[in-house]
Simulated assay, not measured.
Amino acid sequence: MTKQWLYVIDEAIKRIENDEVELGLQALQKVQEHGKDLPEVMLYLAEVWYRLGHLDEAAELLAEVMKANPELDPPLRRECQLLLAEIALDGNDFEAAQHILYELKESGYENLRLDLLLTDLYAMQGLDEVAIKYLEQARQKEPDNKEILTALGNMYFQIGKDDEAMKALEQAGEQSVELLLSKSRVLAQNGDFEQAYHLYQHALEQEQSAEILYGCALMAFHTGNVEEAADYVGRLLALDEEYVAGYPLAADIFLSMGKTEKSIEALEQYVELSGFDLDQIRRLVALLTQSGRYEDAKEYQKLLDAWNVDEE
């Protein structure tokens, strides 16, 4: 009987994924009505409700399963508790999540998912040091788990332990790029352009992407490495000529090098691709005027005036 109900749930999921949402939900409701005496089926159904975003339905169903089955098999009960804790975290109910997770921890239960949920609990409350403790426990269980290493590197970055973060990143392999970018952005926002530039270059060694090339170009420009900035922005636009943010940056770089015409070309390309940043159009008009290209300046001024009217 259990396998039959699980099959019905899987078929209902397929209906929902194929845009037959109403039929799929009706099937799930029927399973809930007629399969209440099967805890394994109800747990699976609760997981499905949770994945579909029906958090209240999932939580209520789990509570009913645990209440109706006081002698529930311990592994199954723990699965119910872990899912309830996850639902509580998604709803920012930290007190409920902590109560469930501590109860499991104090019972002597050791589990990777438990450690990760405790990590989430404290990270979401800004208690990074405590979160790292549980993340380290998770790494002890699975030392080569890239997801754990990635999360650990990110947490180390947040508390300023860059050396430990880099070690975790190196062990994580290709997933370290995301964290390098995350840290680079934070450093750049804090004005630490030199260190941000270093990390962007490190990320570029692992992945040639438009975002990383843009970061390298921007940081090179901010640190006064103009020739390097020009090289990076050239590579960026060769890789992705529709990377719109690259053109104003290219204009800045070329202007700083005294290459006004190349700056104008970059801004003209920018306007052709996006055309919505009026400040950049004003800048283009000013550069064209300064260069004596009055007719071209008039054309862009007309465009600017038209958009100004539309905004009003």
Results as ranks from 00 to 15, higher is better:
K259A: 12
E227S: 01
G234T: 04
I264T: 05
L181W: 01
M124P: 00
A46I: 05
E299H: 09
M42D: 05
A220K: 00
Y232C: 03
L187I: 05
S209P: 03
E47C: 05
E57A: 11
I9H: 05
E106M: 11
N145I: 04
D163L: 06
D73F: 09
I281Q: 02
G160L: 11
Q158M: 12
R77K: 14
E299P: 01
E227G: 01
N69I: 01
E268H: 05
L112E: 15
N18D: 14
V177I: 10
A63D: 14
S274P: 03
E227C: 00
I212Q: 12
Y300W: 10
L284T: 04
A68W: 07
E207C: 02
L239A: 02
E164L: 06
W5H: 10
L45Q: 14
D162A: 12
A165Q: 00
E103W: 05
Y156R: 03
P74G: 05
T119Q: 10
E205L: 13
L82P: 03
Y44F: 12
L255C: 03
S184R: 04
E194W: 01
V31P: 08
E242Q: 15
E268P: 06
V186W: 00
A165D: 12
F193N: 00
V130Q: 14
R113S: 09
G91Y: 04
L104E: 14
V285I: 15
L72S: 06
M257K: 14
Q98D: 08
F276V: 14
